[in-house]
Design a protein around this nucleic acid. Structure first.
Length: 286
DNA sequence: AGCTCTTCCTGAAAGC
DNA sequence: TGCTTTCAGGAAGAGC
């Protein structure tokens, strides 16, 4: 599933081919995951792609839309795309065969197409005209941009479990289930621990683990478990480096104990019971 | 504040 | 073998 490293990989691929291109036409299939499909069809054709960037798990296309028949400066439009669980953005030739569940086609002025495919349609697409506010405002800092101090600041003191906080986009933007589990294993912190129980040194340890894991995952172009591919259709390789995620019952790479899986904050959470000891239940003497 | 449960959706895997 | 059931999960919303 696309998390920060996968979205970053897609963005870097698109940055090589999209900036400067114009959108000629937008064609839509199923639209129940698009905020205002008619607006996309109406506003995007003719616009120029100025930049493609990542914001948390969102892809953001910065578009300049000329105001036809006026002398006004181009309207700045942001196209936000969240890949959800199974979203894929692929660039291809217009005569490339159409994969099942391809729901959006952006026809470009160089004759190529940018296509959005999403079997489960957990993804989301919406257009934000500059100055109209956007849903991105409520997200926390990017873990790769945050300093150690900021990172510790975001996590300390909460009563929630550390795993829940790592998944909470308003606390940190971009982490998902895979990288939360892998980072906690690396930092030797049990996912069930309450954030308020973590020592300063443990939070710093977690910061370093998150940095290492995310950078290595980006270097290996993300984790391809079932659906994820980059914008050229290439799979990533970080799944080969997973130490706990979806490795229940297998041996811990550090200590050979068997990896366990529990549900924390409604999510599958994988950990080594030996390296990441469960906090001792406080038991009152009777 | 933060937990659980539910919803969205499809395909893969497990169960019978 | 072939059908049915279960599960996976990012995010949002309800209810507690």
């Amino acid at each position: 599933m696309p998390e920060l490293p996968e979205v970053e990989t897609v963005v870097r691929g698109l940055q090589k081919v999209l900036p400067g291109r114009r959108i000629v036409e937008v064609r839509l299939g199923k639209t129940d995951f698009i905020e205002d499909p008619a607006a996309l069809e109406r506003e995007l054709p003719g616009s120029r792609i100025a930049a493609v960037r990542r914001y948390g798990k969102f892809l953001v296309f910065d578009l300049e839309s000329p105001q036809a028949g006026t002398h006004k400066p181009a309207l700045l439009i942001h196209l936000l795309i969240h890949l959800g669980m199974t979203g894929q953005l692929i660039t291809c030739a217009p005569d490339a065969s159409i994969a099942p569940h391809t729901h959006v086609f952006f026809v470009l002025d160089d004759g190529r197409e940018l296509r959005y495919k999403d079997p489960r349609r957990f993804g989301n697409m919406q257009m934000v005209v500059q100055g109209n506010g956007s849903p991105l405002g409520s997200l926390g800092p990017d873990p790769l941009e945050a300093t150690e101090t900021e990172f510790v600041q975001q996590l300390r003191g909460h009563r929630a479990r550390i795993k829940a906080l790592l998944l909470d986009q308003s606390v940190l933007r971009g982490m998902g289930n895979i990288y939360a589990d892998e980072s906690l294993w690396r930092a030797r912190i049990n996912p069930m621990r309450l954030a308020s129980s973590l020592k300063e040194a443990e939070l710093r340890q977690l910061y370093r683990a998150v940095q290492t894991i995310l950078k290595e995952a980006i270097r290996l172009r993300g984790s391809s478990i079932s659906d994820y591919v980059d914008c050229s259709g290439e799979r990533g390789e970080f799944q080969l480096k997973h130490r706990v995620y979806q490795r229940e019952g297998k041996k811990c790479a550090r200590c050979k104990a068997l990896i366990r899986r529990v549900i924390v904050a409604g999510r599958s959470s994988h950990f080594c019971p030996n390296c990441q000891p469960v906090p001792r239940a406080r038991r009152r003497k009777k």
